[in-house]
Each structure stands twice: as structure tokens, then as C-alpha cells.
């Protein structure tokens, strides 16, 4: 069965850019959420294997999503994809359990490298 990937970003364009940056040969089901609350709702359904999470979003931002996921016992891999490139932001998301930080605009090669590094895509 294919893995399930959740792309969380308030921007439709950003979600589209990220999805197009995923490895073409990667057999995954891609779902989308437009804010942190939607992301948590999708996560709680229990079948999200990997989440690409934006930080700056309305309703609930990415930091809050990570804090909530950690409080609930993080049960999926999270890659933060954000324009907030402050070193402190990158350190914080790692402390909150994200496996990697990818800066926007997404470079498909760098994203592929991150996914390979963590063994989640060929």
C-alpha cells in the first residue's frame, strides 16, 4: 500500500509547488490541508506517514501543530517547509520533532536529498 503524505500550507500555489517537487517515481497518496487545524484533523485519522508542514499559517501555525503532535505522541515524520529561515526557527522545529527543515521556494533536488537521507523515498 502506498504511503500517505500530507501537504500542509495555506497557499494553494505553495502546495502545488511542493507536490511537483516530490520525486516522480515516489508511490504516495498525497493529501492536502490549508492550516494547522485541518492538518491535525487529518493526522488524527491515523494514516499520515509523512507531513510537509508550513510554519506561517492562519488558524494554527506550524509551531503549534508540532507542539500538539508532540503532546499527542508524534506518530508520523514531519518535514517543515517554510519561508521563515531564521536559524532559531529551524532549531525550534527540530527540537519539536521535525526531522528536517526545507526552505521555500522548494528546491526539488534538496527535497529529494532530505527524503533519501531519511529513507522515505528512493
Amino acid at each position: 500500500m502506498a504511503s500517505t503524505v500530507l501537504v500542509v500550507d495555506d497557499s494553494a500555489m505553495a502546495r502545488k509547488m511542493l507536490i511537483r517537487s516530490l520525486p516522480a517515481t515516489w508511490d504516495v497518496e498525497v493529501r492536502q490541508a490549508t492550516n494547522g487545524l485541518e492538518a491535525l484533523a487529518a493526522y488524527r485519522q491515523g494514516d499520515v506517514d509523512l507531513m510537509f508542514l508550513d510554519l506561517t499559517m492562519p488558524e494554527m501555525d506550524g509551531f503549534q501543530v508540532l507542539e500538539t503532535l508532540r503532546a499527542e505522541g508524534l506518530n508520523c515524520l514531519v518535514v517543515v517547509v517554510s519561508a521563515d529561515i531564521q536559524p532559531e526557527a529551524q532549531e525550534r522545529v527540530k527540537r519539536l520533532g521535525a526531522i528536517a527543515f526545507v526552505k521555500k521556494p522548494v528546491d526539488p533536488e534538496k527535497l529529494g536529498g532530505v527524503l533519501r537521507e531519511y529513507g522515505v523515498a528512493l
Partner: peptide, 15 residues
């Protein structure tokens, strides 16, 4: 698109 492009510029400015 403009909001997202601005968001990326804002991120650079914030840093």
C-alpha cells in the same frame, strides 16, 4: 501567488 511570494520575501526580511 502574490501572498506566497510576499511570504517568501517576508521570511528573508525576518531573518
Amino acid at each position: 501567488a502574490l501572498q506566497e511570494l510576499t511570504n517568501i520575501g517576508m521570511g528573508q526580511a525576518g531573518a
